[in-house]
């Protein structure tokens, strides 16, 4: 049994298989019976150590549409608040016979640690500031649906790159899929390691926008900041927020994405967020299809269809 821990583990063929599978599974959402019998009798545990609405609900909806049994576990009000370690929680899940574990954890690398302790497939649903591979897959899916291709697409990822697992996963996956990524952020919100990432880096949003097919805005993750990274929210918005004027600089065909949750008026203006060229709501819909595809490919067969 294999896992989905990092978007960088996927080959071009595997990533394309996930996207193609998701495309077929997207039809299920429009049927009278929104359910497939494929994962009947399999148990998927949602192990969430961090607050999450859309990712947890999305994984839950995906698993239920595939007929898997879903057990939700959140750290609040569980044995974790009594002091149980991740390993002991993992062994408990193992003993209960979980076929798949979806984990969201505040510590980078938690998903990989967990994969050493359980037999079931581990799906990383966000580990600290490290990775969030299914988000990158659903972003790539959304781009492919909107733009018709990924190869050669110019993607700008703007905002708090330092604390963003979405940015790292997107950079790795989009590189595999042939897109060109430019990260745009104030120098204080870029990780030190960014020089080694397969992407361009810019500090100037206005210069990057006219050359972008896709702009992905990221939320400033105030909850992970115990330092002053920029003088004020207003100044951040002035230099890195996507407002109507900046939106007008984009090419006609360009789309705006946001992994959510977004702060209107901070990194994105309400006018842009509600524009028909914003894919924010589509991303949520596509997230369910992509997670169904990942669950099917990891749990549906005798061995995983990806990650081998």
């Amino acid at each position: 049994m294999r896992h989905l821990l990092s978007a960088g583990d996927l080959s071009l063929d595997e990533a394309t298989l996930v996207l193609d599978t998701a495309k077929e599974l997207a039809q299920v959402g429009g049927r009278s019976v929104k359910k497939l019998p494929t994962l009947r009798g399999r148990t998927v545990v949602n192990l969430f150590y961090e607050d999450s609405t859309r990712t947890r609900i999305s994984f839950e909806a995906a698993a239920k549409r595939m007929s898997a049994d879903v057990i939700n576990f959140s750290a609040k009000g569980s044995s974790v608040s009594k002091g149980e370690s991740l390993k002991d929680t993992a062994l408990t899940l193992q003993a209960m016979g979980a076929d798949g574990v979806v984990i969201r954890h505040g510590a980078s690398g938690a998903a990989r640690r967990l994969s050493n302790w359980v037999d079931g497939a581990v799906l990383n649903a966000g580990d600290g500031t490290h990775e969030h591979p299914t988000q990158a897959l659903l972003d790539a899916y959304t781009m492919r649906e909107r733009m018709g291709r990924l190869d050669g697409l110019r993607v700008a990822i703007v905002g708090d790159i330092l604390h963003s697992r979405v940015a790292r996963s997107n950079v790795l996956l989009l590189r595999t899929l042939g897109a060109h990524v430019t990260l745009v952020a104030p120098p204080t919100l870029l990780p030190v390691s960014v020089a080694g990432w397969p992407c361009e880096v810019s500090y100037d949003l206005d210069e990057v926008l006219p050359k972008s097919d896709v702009v992905m805005m990221l939320r400033v993750q105030a909850e992970r900041m115990n330092d002053a990274f920029f003088p004020s929210a207003r100044e951040y918005t002035r230099r890195y927020g996507l407002d109507g004027d900046r939106f007008a600089q984009l090419p006609e065909h360009a789309v705006v994405m946001h992994p959510g949750p977004m702060i209107r008026g901070m990194e994105i203006s309400a006018e842009v967020a509600d524009s028909p060229r914003s894919t924010i709501v589509e991303q949520v819909t596509n997230g369910v299809s992509v997670r169904m595809a990942v669950l099917y490919l990891l749990l549906g067969g005798s061995e995983s269809g990806i990650g081998n």
Binding site: L17, D20, T21, E24, L25, T38, Y296, L297, L298, G300, G301, S302, E303, S304, G305, I306, N308
Partner: peptide, 11 residues
């Protein structure tokens, strides 16, 4: 399904 690796879907 469980006798073989996960298959690609048809249309």
């Amino acid at each position: 399904l469980r006798l073989a690796p996960a298959r690609a879907l048809g249309r």
